[in-house]
């Protein structure tokens, strides 16, 4: 896996005195699906635009598919399919014509551009509606059209900015599985930015957490959660048929089990935190006590928690530095600028 397709080195972008992207270094391998996560205004879109050479970095270097994106953007754009977050189409033209136009711009010859566009429309599930004007399309349909447009150029890299925005849940899962399949079959590298954590979690190999222009963490989701939640990595929730009787005795017993750090009760559920996976022991313990277990649920940390944790850490750091208002100010400044 030492075939970097996207390489960012010390990338910085200033808008006036505002640091949109702050000394970002990141390497994405071929065939990888990478998720860029972060709150609004974190600099995700700016980073993506710099990868495509649509915005010049203040300092640092972007290399995509071996080309410098700043000095040679057209070569990069030939290899990269980009799907912006709020894309528009020529409303007066039919969806198919929109697609054909993009196909022609990518140098697809006249003789094959139309059949290929039709094929793409069928592929993304718009075969029935391809002769409708793009203006009549719903948000989700536009998103699919955008995907067709990315695919028609047969890219080596697909970059998507908030790709699942505005698609219904069924569409999202079809969309994501399509991305996954493409990446597997064609070895296409995919970079997607999102704030929909559970979706990113489902499809990405690696994620990067991006706050205020800095990459706070970049790793596999499993490793990220291990790293963050090492203190109470395993939380088990056990549900009983009735209120737990004699809790204090139970609690003492649980805390005696090796590795248990905490045990709490709430009506008929007990939550136990443990440094190792000791679920069978808990179950045996409760069964020995003669309690009727209805369900055992082992809690796993998803991106939601990881994200929350990183974000909180960042905020508390800021607060301790006396800059708590910074984030808020930023968003206000952004609005004024527009």
């Amino acid at each position: 896996m030492e075939n970097p397709v996207i390489e960012l080195m010390g990338l910085t972008k200033l808008y006036g005195s505002l640091k949109a992207v702050d000394n970002l270094s990141l390497t994405i391998q071929k065939g990888e699906i990478y998720g860029l996560l972060g709150p609004n205004g974190a600099g995700k879109t700016t980073t993506i635009l710099m990868m495509l050479g649509l915005t010049e970095p203040t300092s640092g270097k972007v290399t995509v598919c071996g080309y410098n994106a700043t000095s040679n953007p057209v070569a990069v754009k030939k290899k990269v399919g980009y799907m912006p977050d709020n894309m528009g189409f020529y409303d007066g033209m039919s969806a198919l014509d929109n697609l054909v136009y993009i196909g022609r711009l990518n140098g697809i010859p006249e003789s094959t551009v139309r059949p290929r566009a039709t094929e793409m429309m069928d592929l993304v599930g718009l075969g029935q509606a391809m002769n409708k004007k793009a203006g009549t399309y719903s948000r989700g349909m536009k998103q699919r059209l955008g995907l067709a447009e990315v695919l028609i150029k047969q890219p080596e890299v697909i970059i998507m900015d908030e790709p699942t925005l505005g698609i219904d849940p069924a569409g999202v899962s079809a969309f994501l599985s399509l991305i996954r399949q493409l990446s597997n079959q064609q070895n296409i590298t995919v970079l997607l930015s999102s704030h929909h954590l559970n979706q990113v979690q489902r499809v990405c190999d690696r994620v990067g957490i991006f706050v205020e222009g800095r990459l706070l963490a970049s790793d596999h989701i499993a490793r990220l959660s291990n790293h963050l939640f090492s203190r109470d990595a395993h939380v088990v929730k056990i549900t009983f048929d009735d209120q737990v009787t004699g809790w204090t005795e139970c609690q003492a017993g649980l805390l005696n089990i090796e590795g248990v750090t905490r045990a709490t009760v709430h009506e008929n559920t007990v939550e136990v935190s443990c440094t190792r996976n000791a679920t069978p022991e808990f179950v045996r313990y409760f069964v020995g006590k003669g309690l009727n277990i209805m369900g055992v649920h082992q809690k796993e940390y998803g991106l939601e928690e990881i994200y929350q944790r990183y974000f909180e850490n960042n905020l508390t750091e800021k607060e301790s530095n006396g800059k708590s208002g910074n984030l808020f100010q930023r968003s206000i400044f952004k609005k004024i600028k527009k």
Binding site: P84, N86, M87, G88, F89, D91, L105, G107
Partner: peptide
């Protein structure tokens, strides 16, 4: 630019 077609157009290999 307002319609969002500009960014899409410039993401294609066009000067």
């Amino acid at each position: 630019q307002q319609n969002g077609t500009l960014i899409r157009l410039l993401a294609q290999p066009v000067y």
